[in-house]
Amino acid sequence: MLFHRSLTTRTRLRAAAVGALFSALAALLVTTPTAASAAEPAGNPAPARVGDLRPGQAFMGAGTMIHEGAAAADDAMVIPLDSSGGVQGIDVSHWQGAINWTSVRNAGIQFAWMKATEGTSYKDSSFNSNYVGAYNAGVIRGAYHFALPNASSGATQANYFASNGGAWSRDNLTLPGVLDIESNPYGATCYGLSQTAMRSWITDFYNTYKSRTSRDIVIYTSPSWWNTCTGSWSGMAAKSPLWVAHWTSAGSPTLPGGFSVWTVWQYTSSGSVSGVSGGVDRDKFNGSRDRLLALANNTA
């Protein structure tokens, strides 16, 4: 779900995460991000590596790359699944730049989640255009919030998310919001919270989002982070659909402790799709399109 994430750039960032040489790939950085909104760090060029991210610049999978590297994948260079397999989706942020959503839909992508907010003060500058563009192209769309549990309470961030793009409506094309909770891209993996405190933070976010939208929040995480920072907690398994990050060409992902089934699988961080200039995270829904629509319409 990078820095205008071209395929070569995504590969470069993965290489940085696992300690590969930067010099051989330096020339492959193609662009800088689109103009930032007032809520994002203004005037920041694309960082040379994922570890140089500044607050507000995080994207889905950023913390996983920094803290887990190749541990998130079966091998350093993941071969994407056949794009025709199952119900396919993508996740995006302002790092992708302008997206041709009609081309994305024509390429077989049926759903997309896009970054809306981070912490309590950052709103993605491309969210509005992505959210409307995906809807108009017939892509079942949704919003995600990059969590910073050390910045405020879960309730505060859930309210910020719900008020800035994370709301939900039964319009046949809107998915419930996502809590992107993964390794801290700016510091300590678990944000300085104990396992008990992290569980409480997630519960606080879940309860507030549910009261604001009537929907269960979808949880995006990696097995390593969840097991380490929540203690393989099973407390959300019966309430929140799981979106698991495991970049692999294998037939199924590894699940975090406490979960027995996945709803969405981010299977590569270096995919591609028509309509997106360069690389993009690729995702797969665990079920048919009818089941995806049931999730969107809260009839699952």
Score class of each variant (00 low, 15 high):
Ser270Asn: 15
Tyr209Asn: 08
Ser232Cys: 05
Thr174Phe: 01
Thr189Leu: 00
Ile219Pro: 05
Ala72Trp: 12
Thr299Val: 11
Arg215Glu: 07
Ser249Phe: 02
Gly279Ala: 09
Pro80Val: 02
Asp290Ala: 15
Ala16Arg: 12
Arg141Asp: 01
Leu292Arg: 03
Ser83Thr: 07
Thr32Tyr: 15
Glu182Leu: 02
Leu7Glu: 13
Arg14Ser: 11
Tyr220His: 09
Glu118Pro: 02
Arg105Asn: 03
Phe59Arg: 04
Val276Asn: 05
Ser183Asp: 12
Gly177Arg: 06
Ala73Arg: 11
Asp281Gln: 06
Trp247Tyr: 15
Asp180Arg: 05
Asp124Ile: 02
Ala48Gly: 11
Asn172Tyr: 03
Thr208Arg: 14
Arg141Thr: 03
Gly89Asn: 06
Met114Tyr: 02
Ser183Asn: 11
Ala134His: 01
Gly108Glu: 08
Val18Ala: 10
Trp233Glu: 07
Val87Cys: 06
Thr120His: 04
Ala24Val: 07
Leu175Thr: 01
Val218Gly: 05
Ile202Asn: 02
Asp82Leu: 02
Ser232Gln: 09
Ser121Phe: 01
Leu175Pro: 00
Ala250Glu: 14
Pro47Thr: 05
Ala72Tyr: 11
Pro41Thr: 10
Ser194Thr: 15
Ser288Gly: 03
Ala72Ile: 14
Ala294Ser: 14
Leu28Asn: 11
Asp82Ile: 00
Ala38Ser: 14
Thr31Leu: 13
Ala76Pro: 00
Arg105Thr: 01
Leu175Asn: 02
Ser214Gln: 12
Ser37Tyr: 00
Leu242Glu: 10
Asn286Ile: 01
Pro55Ala: 12
Val30Trp: 13
Ser103Leu: 09
Ser269Ile: 00
Gly97Asn: 09
Asn297Ser: 13
Ala155Gln: 12
Ser260His: 06
Asn172Glu: 10
Arg105Val: 01
Ile99Thr: 06
Ala24Asn: 04
Leu292Ile: 03
Thr8Glu: 13
Ser153Arg: 07
Ser153Cys: 07
Ser152Gly: 12
Leu53Ala: 03
Tyr209Ala: 04
Trp226Met: 05
Thr268Leu: 10
Asn172His: 12
Ile217Phe: 10
Tyr186Met: 05
Ser260Phe: 00
Ser270Trp: 04
Ser125Lys: 07
Tyr209Gly: 04
Gly235Trp: 04
Ile217Gly: 08
Thr299Met: 05
Ser183Cys: 08
Asp74Leu: 11
